[in-house]
Simulated assay, not measured.
Amino acid sequence: MKPGDHFLNQKLFKTSKKDVIRFRSIWISDLHLGTTGCQAARLLEFLQATESETLYLVGDIIDGWQLKRRWYWDQTHNNVVQTVLKKAKKGTNVIFVPGNHDESIRQFIDLDFGGIKVRDELVHVTAQGKRMLVLHGDRFDGVIACAKWLAYVGDSLYTVILKFNQVFNNWRARAGLPYWSLSQYLKLKVKNAVSYISSFENALADEARKRDLDGVICGHIHKPEIRDIDGVLYCNDGDWVESLSALVEEANGELRLVSWHDIMQVNHPALLTEPELVNA
């Protein structure tokens, strides 16, 4: 079963302390709070079911682009923000690295708000001593850097594709079929998209190599990935629109990708049997 196969239409499950899965560090990005595509309910379940010494918010947390076009903000989006603030208050080291969709936050770089540190980029040292560059990654996107207007067009097209996915997958759920993502399919199958992703990944790896670092951790392209690129460890934590994924560091320093499905399968497997999709 793939991440995102089930988006449950039910009340959020309250996780008890004994159920919480603990990590040394967690990286999440591309939440796109403020859009109908954000799977805020699933994200909230993930945040409630996990704890970490450090929580990195690696950009595009709040989608300012979409909010400028049309205001959308429901209670689950509030709950996500409140949960993150609560984690910071209780001692989690929360670091916010803004992306292109929440670029207005970049004016507050190096300031702290409510226990949340706003940073442009930073180096994370794992328990194994690996030095990892952490940044959103949009500055290494040729479309963002050279033709921002085209990025806005692409964002609008992506929104249309997500709406089609919602309708199409509601039909598939009623037919007893698993979730299928058109945008993920296009990313993996369309030659230009594959080339774009590869160029982005190589550019980020090159930057880490130039700085004599062991690897890079980013978001931006909504494609969760861990792979070695000529001796540099490239990690992308994915997104909370389709992949519902995060990058985590275990206590021993191991880095791996997890999904909402992985976490819920450990804690509450009964929740994964519900057939209905959320109506966005």
Rank of each mutant, 00 (worst) to 15 (best):
V232L: 05
E225V: 15
P224W: 06
F200C: 03
A205E: 05
G219S: 08
H222W: 05
R209M: 04
A208E: 01
N236K: 06
H220I: 04
S198R: 11
D230Q: 05
D237S: 14
W240G: 02
Y234E: 09
L233V: 13
G219I: 01
K210L: 09
K223R: 14
C235W: 00
K223M: 10
Y234P: 06
C235F: 04
D239R: 03
W240C: 06
L204D: 00
S198T: 15
K223H: 11
D230S: 15
A205G: 05
R211G: 01
I217A: 14
I197N: 10
V216M: 03
I217S: 09
S199Q: 01
Y196H: 12
S195N: 15
D214Q: 07
V241N: 09
D206N: 08
Y234D: 07
H222A: 14
E225F: 14
K210Y: 08
P224Y: 03
V241H: 03
S199K: 09
G219Q: 08
D212R: 08
D212M: 02
G219T: 03
E207V: 06
Y196V: 06
I229P: 06
Y234M: 10
C235E: 03
S198D: 15
E201F: 08
D212Q: 12
V232I: 15
L204R: 00
G215I: 00
I226Y: 01
G238D: 04
Y196I: 08
E242M: 02
G215V: 00
L213F: 03
E207Y: 01
D237V: 06
R209C: 06
I197L: 13
G238V: 10
E207F: 02
H220M: 05
I226N: 02
A205V: 03
D230P: 07
